[in-house]
Amino acid sequence: MKKIVVIYESMLVQMRQSFVRPMFKFCLFFNPIISTILLYEMYINSGETNYFAYVVLGSGLMGLWGCICFSSAGDINRERHSGTLAIIYTAPVSFREIVVGKIMGNTILSIFSFVMSLLVAKILFHIEIDIKNPFYFLFSFVATIVVFVIIATIVAFLLMLSRKTELYMNCIEVPLIMLSGFVFPVDLLPKPLQLFSRLIPSTYAVELLRITACGIEDINNFWNKVVLLTGISLLYVLGARLLYRIIDKRVRIKGNLNVV
């Protein structure tokens, strides 16, 4: 019960703090508008007619990931500079729960970038919002959110080790967009890169979103991807737990929690 309170309170505090930051507002409101326009222009002569699956989902996912990535990773540095990282780290509750709460707060706010993409696509380009399997789509959407939270948690833990978090989060934002197939299918990537894609759970989450938006043709294929997504996500969760144990010791040996 205490864990839930900590996650919930951290989430609320994070939402309050993120929402007033200009960068977060940019990621939340303007980034999806620009991405939707650009993706629409890219896809207009591509022969692909399902604009929802590529333009709206693509820009929505980019906005969602951008907000989560820049906020969750950047927040570690913001906490470090405001002197609160050391305080929340040495609080008697687990720092893991605090981080998860913060990422959940950012994620909930970030869902609005999806809404922005939908609105822009509908108003500017009159794109039909036709989701063939709405129930399965909702399921896939929730799975996507969970996967993003897991990945962002791992990233946040890793960034505790360094003070150059801004540099690293810029380095991870675009590769994940490409490797997970946010804006085009991963099958278009070179074969060696596809191997990397298959190791990232968000790849399966995005595929599930597209399958359910376009209409499930093979239900077995859908469930196979759900199983793969679950399995890899569980491995990531186990990895995150192990990573935290290592990082928990490492940051105190290296002394990374303060600015100086």
């Binding site: 309170e9 951290s10 505090v13 703090q17 500079h81 405001s82 002197g83 305080i87």
Partner: peptide, 15 residues
């Protein structure tokens, strides 16, 4: 340092 500037004093202490 050591407090959240975008929260009130009470919200800080509550958290």
């Amino acid at each position: 340092t050591g407090v959240y500037r975008r929260l009130t004093a009470r919200e800080n202490l509550r958290y």
